[in-house]
Write a protein that binds this DNA or RNA. Structure first.
Lengths: 239, 239
DNA sequence: CGTTAAGCGGTTATCGATAATCGTTGACGA
DNA sequence: TCGTCAACGATTATCGATAACCGCTTAACG
């Protein structure tokens, strides 16, 4: 069997894709032996891929009981925003120093977001939204901050979240909210830039809060968060 | 071979202990087959343990080249404080709501810290210091925040850091800095409590900054960070 | 009937062996 | 002398098989 990279890495990508596309749903079991057989490989790389995905928080395992796709519930979706808010505030403050390096990138991301929004293309929208935020994080220059932010797995969550947002509030254009951030970066005041970042994230959090609330006043707690639309495969960085 | 928990878990603990105790130094290779032989087990659980430790950021692996103990450099030590500061500020704000549940615990931790400080027992000092901070994090009630903070591996870093601190500035008593936090929690003002937490972390960061600076003005960048004292084994939760 | 325990199917955890890959060494030729 | 490359030893990545374990069913027992 020819392979360019390590098998377990390929397995991971494939499984991730399956999860993102909803072919595996939250709670579904991921049986090592079955996956191995299906992919025509042995159990070891599958096992390793699954463990990696635990670290990524896409999967959870119990000893001797195996792995299943992790359930993302409302609580989790909502709890993430305060955390993002404070991390991204810090990123905004620090990024001012290197704003010049990323302004073009930010501009481009925002344009693509607008286009994707008009096309109601959630996947692309999420892609450029995340890219916008990530660029600022990286411009912060603080490696620990970047890794911490990455550990929140914003990609995956943003996709799921935007999916929800667009389907319920199709009129909200997030791209517009990015302009004040670009302006603050140009202006060069760290405090202000941090504050704008924070407010942006918090605002988004509030919107999500609103969505959950008027969705169901009754069941306040832990309603799981389904991703049930048919989705095209992602892949490929649209230049 | 009798075993209470999964082997890979035991391996992980043992290796972690070895690293913390300096029996493996940063940069040292961790050869799967050697470790397996030494422990009288097969390669698989060792491999799994090592991958886990990658997620914990104690170890780094390159495909086909194996694992080595991660080098912690000054940059990393210093970068962590701004991140901790913002996370713990948030935690402080949120924890006010559940302050009653943890005040006793915080009080106790602080007393133990003082004792450990007087005995110049770094390991115990680190233990209770971390416990103090963790209690507040957990009282925040925001699971994502807790996990994010955990992902920073404060335990390990605190130990290394305090080791350094105590050996160079043995007069600084950290326990004292915890009293204002306890007071703020009692008082019940979220904003103030958050600010106190933030300031505490930042102050600690500043101290570390100072240590690095007057240690060597010359080599400004990426000086690795050695842990070269002989250390007693840890284990066991003192009452 | 309710309870316990042995049996069973399915799966994970671990093993021991092998294939694939890396870094190095040293012979060889320019 | 230097650079190239085949061969080697060391180590990782993967395999296929087996032991250990979980949850469930069922049969024996009170």
């Amino acid at each position: 069997m020819i392979q360019r990279v390590v098998l377990s890495e390929q397995v991971k990508e494939e499984l991730l894709d399956d999860i993102m596309a909803g072919r595996y749903k939250p709670g579904d079991r991921l049986v090592e032996s079955q996956i191995a057989k299906r992919m025509g490989i042995s159990q070891s790389p599958v096992r390793e891929a699954l463990r990696d995905m635990v670290a990524m928080r896409f999967v959870e395992v119990e000893p001797h009981k195996g792995a299943r796709v992790r359930q993302i519930d409302q609580r989790e979706v909502l709890e993430i925003y305060p955390v993002r808010a404070c991390l991204e505030e810090l990123a905004g403050q620090l990024a001012v120093a290197h704003a010049g390096d990323i302004l073009d990138d930010l501009q481009k991301s925002t344009e693509r977001m607008t286009a994707a929004f008009e096309a109601q293309d959630v996947r692309t929208l999420a892609h450029w939204d995340v890219r916008f935020h990530r660029a600022i994080l990286e411009a912060s220059g603080n490696q620990i901050l970047i890794e911490t932010w990455n550990s929140l797995m914003i990609e995956a969550r943003t996709f799921v979240t935007l999916n929800n947002l667009i389907s319920r509030k199709p009129h909200i254009n997030l791209a517009g909210r990015h302009m004040p951030i670009i302006e603050a970066l140009q202006e060069g005041d760290p405090i202000r830039c941090g504050r704008v970042m924070r407010e942006h994230v918090e605002e988004f959090g509030d919107v999500m809060h609103g969505i959950f609330e008027d969705g169901d006043e009754s069941t306040t707690d832990l309603k799981p968060f389904e991703l049930d639309m048919a989705l095209p495969p992602l892949k490929a960085e649209a230049g």
